[in-house]
C-alpha cells in the first residue's frame, strides 16, 4: 500500500511541476506563434470569404459594454481642419475633409465589437464604407495591403480584401451620435470581421501598398497576430 501511495504522490508531484514549468515555457511563446500563425491566418482568410456577417437589431446595442482602450492618450482633432490623406498605390492621391466623407453613401452596421482581451460589445457604427473612400482615389491593381495612420501615432496594416469588405466602415457616428473623442472622433475604422486592435481610432491617413513593410502594426510588432480575423 505504501508504494502505491508513494507512486500516487509522485504522479501528483510531476503533474504540478508541469504547471510550474509554465514559467520556463513563457519564453517559447513567440516561437510557438511563429510556427503556427501562418497556417492559422490562412485558414482565417479562407473562412472570411463567406460574405456579409449577420447584423444585430439597433435595440441590442450595449453602450456600457464598450470599454475604451488607448495606447497613447486621446488626441483632440479640430473637425474643421481635419483631413484624411489617401495615398500610396493610387491613381489620384486625395485629401478629404469631413464634408467629402459625409457626401458619400452612408451605411450603418450594428455589429459585435470584439476585443482581444476577451470582452465584446454590440455597437451601431455609421459612416461611409472604406471601400467607397478608397475607390475615390482609384486603387492600383497591384495594391494588396492598406496602411492606416492615426493622429496618436497608432499604426495598422490590413489585407485589402478585409478593407474592401462591405461592412468595413470609416465610422463617423456611434449609436446614432457623432463619435466621442475617446471612441476615435472624428473618423475611425469599424468592422465586424477584425478584432478591436485592428480598428484604428483617430484615422488621418490611408496608404495602399503592394506589399507589407517592416512595420505591421503597433501591437502586431509587439507580438500580436496580424490577420486577427473574427
Amino acid at each position: 500500500m505504501l508504494s502505491r501511495r508513494r507512486s500516487l504522490g509522485l504522479l501528483l508531484g510531476s503533474g504540478s511541476s508541469l504547471v510550474l514549468g509554465g514559467c520556463a515555457l513563457d519564453g517559447w511563446s513567440g516561437t510557438v506563434g511563429a510556427a503556427t500563425q501562418p497556417l492559422n491566418e490562412r485558414v482565417e482568410a479562407l473562412l472570411q470569404r463567406r460574405g456579409t456577417v449577420p447584423e444585430f437589431d439597433r435595440r441590442q446595442v450595449q453602450p456600457e459594454a464598450l470599454l475604451i482602450n488607448s495606447f497613447n492618450g486621446t488626441p483632440r482633432i479640430e473637425p474643421a481642419s481635419y483631413r484624411l490623406a489617401v495615398a500610396g498605390a493610387v491613381q489620384r492621391p486625395l485629401r478629404l475633409d469631413l464634408a467629402a466623407l459625409a457626401a458619400l453613401p452612408q451605411r450603418e452596421c450594428v455589429i459585435r465589437h470584439v476585443c482581444v482581451e476577451g470582452w465584446a460589445a454590440i455597437v451601431a457604427w455609421s459612416g461611409p464604407r472604406l471601400a467607397d473612400v478608397l475607390a475615390l482615389a482609384g486603387p492600383s491593381p497591384l495594391a494588396g495591403y492598406l496602411a492606416i495612420r492615426s493622429a496618436d501615432q497608432y499604426f495598422e496594416t490590413w489585407d485589402l480584401a478585409s478593407a474592401l469588405h462591405p461592412q468595413t466602415l470609416l465610422a463617423t457616428h456611434m449609436n446614432g451620435a457623432p463619435l466621442a473623442a475617446g471612441n476615435g472622433a472624428p473618423v475611425r475604422l469599424a468592422s465586424p470581421i477584425k478584432l478591436g486592435y485592428k480598428q484604428s481610432k483617430w484615422v488621418t491617413g490611408l496608404e495602399l501598398m503592394s506589399r507589407l513593410g517592416e512595420r505591421r502594426g503597433t501591437w502586431e510588432d509587439q507580438g500580436y497576430e496580424w490577420f486577427a480575423g473574427l
Binding site: S29, G33, G223
Partner: peptide, 12 residues
C-alpha cells in the same frame, strides 16, 4: 507570460 504569448500557445 502576457496576452499575446498566451494566444500564441492557445491558438498554436
Amino acid at each position: 507570460g502576457w496576452l499575446a504569448g498566451a494566444r500564441d500557445w492557445h491558438f498554436g
